[in-house]
Structure formats: structure tokens, C-alpha cells
Amino acid sequence: MIPDKIRAREAAQEVLDEFNIKRIPVPIERIIKSKKIVLEYAPLDEELSGMAYTQDGISIIGINALHHPNRQRFSAAHELGHHVLHPAEIQATVHVSKGLRALRRDPISSLGSDPLEIDANTFASELLMPEKFLLEEIGPDGLDIDDDTSVEKLAKKFRVSVSAMKYRLGSLI
């Protein structure tokens, strides 16, 4: 399996269109709940940002309550990406406590080489930082990606981390 970033971006845009999102920050919690996905926050192991699974017809996203709120937003969008892009995989993946099945962030996924993780990250980036809205915020003069103050202000508007914003801006070049 190879990552399909185009499909992931298109799927994120379809969600934005479905919920008629016209401004930032994107209301990720409202989107998840409107899709009838249970969203739970709980303290998890530090390396686990979130999990997505479906069991007995119930779709669930679990988010690490110990992480920064901006990280939680990205994790929620990432896990929504798994529900949208990988519904079969989140029913047949790693078995964790209480009989729940989850896609776990592990050393392989953190390397950025797992196609499912690449797809979900691409989906989350496009969903929370849509190209259209980024270009509007940046304006015709552009943005110096090395200007930390400007990038921080932009990240704050979108309610994402500075590192997520830098990565997203780098993907637009």
C-alpha cells in the first residue's frame, strides 16, 4: 500500500464542503460529533496521541487528554481521517485493552513511512489548515516560513501547533 495524498486532501475538502466551513478555526469536535463518532478524551501513554476504532457498529475516537489542546485538535482530525479513509483497517488492527481495536502510534508510524499514517496526517493538515484559507491569510505578499513570529500568529489563528503549521506551509511550496 502506498500513501494517497491526493485522495486524503480531496476527502478533507469534502468534509469541509459537507459542513459548509467558511472560516477558521475549523470546528473539528463539532464535525466529529455530527458524523456520529464518539469523541473521548482520556489520559493515555505519552507516545499515544489518539486512537480510532469501530466496534459493534460504534465509531470512536480517543484523544490523549494530557497533550496540548492544539495537539489534541490535530490528533482528532488525524483520527477522523482514519475513519473517513480507512474504515476497514480500524476494524481489523492492533488489539488493545477492553477488547477495543485501534491504530496505534508506534515507532514505525512516527517515522512517517506508514501509508495509513501519511494519509491521515495529510487529511488532518488539509482539514485544519485548508489551502484556500491559508492562502487568504498569507495574502498576496506571501509569508517567510523562517519568520517565527508570523508563523506563530498564523498557527494561533488556525489553532494548530507551530510545527504543524510549518510543515503545512512547506507542503504548499
Rank of each mutant, 00 (worst) to 15 (best):
P140K: 02
P43I: 04
K166M: 15
I24A: 13
I108S: 11
T54W: 00
D106V: 02
S150K: 13
I138N: 08
S59E: 10
H83G: 01
E18C: 12
Q72Y: 00
D4Q: 05
F158C: 09
A164S: 14
K5G: 14
E40K: 13
V96N: 02
R104H: 02
A164R: 10
K33M: 12
M129Y: 04
P27H: 01
G57W: 07
T122Q: 09
R23W: 04
E14P: 10
Y53W: 13
H82S: 07
S163R: 11
K35F: 01
I60D: 08
K153G: 08
G57M: 13
S75V: 00
L39D: 06
G139A: 03
F123I: 12
A92G: 05
P27E: 04
I37N: 11
A11K: 07
H86W: 01
Y53I: 11
E117L: 03
V96A: 06
L39S: 11
P87W: 01
I58N: 04
I145E: 03
F158Q: 07
S34P: 06
K36L: 12
I90C: 01
T93V: 02
E152V: 00
K98F: 03
A92R: 03
I32F: 05
L169A: 13
I21T: 04
A88S: 04
H67T: 05
G50T: 03
F133K: 07
G50L: 03
Q72T: 03
S171V: 10
E18D: 15
E131I: 13
I60P: 02
L134V: 07
L143F: 03
A155M: 10
K22S: 12
L172E: 15
L127W: 05
V94E: 04
H95F: 00
A164G: 08
H83K: 01
L169G: 13
A52F: 00
E137C: 01
A88H: 00
K5V: 12
L66M: 10
E14Q: 15
S163I: 13
E46I: 06
L116I: 13
D147Q: 05
P115K: 10
K5S: 15
S59F: 04
V160L: 12
S171R: 14
G112N: 05
N64F: 01
M1Q: 09
P87M: 02
K22P: 07
A42K: 05
P25Y: 04
E79I: 06
I28T: 08
L172S: 15
D141E: 14
H78G: 01
R30H: 12
L116N: 11
L116E: 12
I32G: 09
N121F: 01
Y41G: 03
K132G: 06
L134Q: 07
K157N: 07
K22N: 12
E136G: 00
A42R: 06
H86I: 08
E136Y: 01
L44Q: 07
K132Y: 09
K166T: 14
I37V: 08
V38D: 12
E47Q: 07
G81E: 10
P27L: 05
L135H: 00
S75Q: 00
I173E: 15
V84N: 02
S171L: 15
R7Q: 09
E40L: 10
K33N: 14
Q13A: 11
D17N: 14
L116C: 10
T54E: 15
A76I: 02
R168Y: 11
E137R: 06
